[in-house]
């Protein structure tokens, strides 16, 4: 069985026929993306997002920060194929993303989405079993994923017996076993306390290094974005557009201790200087 071989390497990318699929091209390419929600009950349509452009390099850790309601989660939904763009295009590995989550994309949501009726092991195995993966391979891949996220000792536990942070890790494991080449995370640590959040961030960095996957993280935490990312996209108030793209320049081998680095303060300060006015706008616009 080859199951245990390499969770640490994502399955090789399928190269698309177009030039966009060639080596060195963007892993994810977004062009002119706009999302408009149709007005209900006589209200005018709501422009939630864009137009925005984005290129993610393979293996990049990219974070999106922005004021509440700026369309961060909408962006993730469209990138994942969970909702359609009103205009513009999204492609993953050279193939257009339309209305369906592409193979090779994993999503972790903000809310706890672990299934309470399944054990930790069965939760993690859920996606593989739906694909009728041979049981020996399921066991190997799940064991490896649980090891990666530090839940090996809890395989038989049920979500109700775990803390919020552990349940969120179960959801990450369920995504990891599918060996995604692009992982989209929608404020996955939003509900956790600050210390757990920092430690989970370290875990995420380790996973990112070991899997080699491209990560897009939606967050409202300036610190989280500054600590974790290679690049940070700062979004404007609704309709969300990128108003700044910040290269952090961090080493690939990093963890939350870089919070002590003077560069960390400089990055958060730069994000906030961009974000302050936008957050005020969002606050004033809030009903």
């Amino acid at each position: 069985m080859t199951g245990g071989a390499a969770l640490s390497r994502p399955e090789p990318a399928r190269t698309g026929g177009s030039a966009a699929g060639a080596a060195g091209a963007a892993h994810v390419r977004v062009r002119g993306l706009t999302r408009v929600y149709p007005g209900a009950g006589g209200r005018p349509p709501l422009k939630a997002l864009g137009p925005l452009d984005l290129d993610l390099a393979p293996g990049e850790f990219f974070s999106v920060v922005g004021p509440s309601g700026c369309g961060k989660s909408t962006l993730l939904d469209v990138l994942a194929g969970l909702s359609a763009a009103s205009a513009g295009s999204v492609s993953f590995e050279g193939r257009a993303v339309t209305g369906q989550v592409p193979d090779g994309v994993g999503v972790v949501f903000q809310e706890d989405s672990s299934f309470p009726w399944l054990s930790v092991f069965d939760n993690a195995a859920f996606g593989l079993r739906r694909l009728k993966t041979p049981e020996a391979e399921v066991r190997a891949r799940v064991a490896e994923a649980l090891g990666l996220i530090g839940l090996s000792g809890f395989a038989d536990a049920f979500p109700a017996q775990l803390s919020g942070g552990m349940r969120q890790r179960v959801c990450i494991a369920r995504t990891l076993v599918m060996r995604p080449r692009l992982i989209l995370l929608d404020e996955p640590f939003g509900a956790l306390d600050q210390q757990t959040k920092l430690l989970m961030g370290d875990e995420l960095l380790r996973l990112w290094r070991e899997t080699g996957a491209t990560i897009l993280l939606i967050t409202h935490s300036l610190d989280e974005a500054a600590l974790l990312s290679d690049r940070i996209g700062v979004m404007s108030a609704r309709p969300g557009r990128f108003i700044d793209l910040i290269e952090t320049g961090w080493d690939r081998e990093r963890d939350s201790r870089i919070a002590a680095d003077p560069g960390f303060g400089a990055i958060t300060a730069r994000i906030w200087s961009q974000l302050r006015e936008e957050s005020l706008k969002a606050m004033r616009a809030a009903p």
Binding site: L82, Q100, D103, V105, V107, F109, S113, F126, R174
Partner: peptide
């Protein structure tokens, strides 16, 4: 919770598999 259905879609489950599982 609606997030269960979003999870189902993110794992590319069809309607029948979503209902059953």
């Amino acid at each position: 919770p609606p997030v269960y259905f979003r999870t189902a879609r993110s794992l590319r489950l069809g309607p029948v598999a979503t209902a059953r599982h």
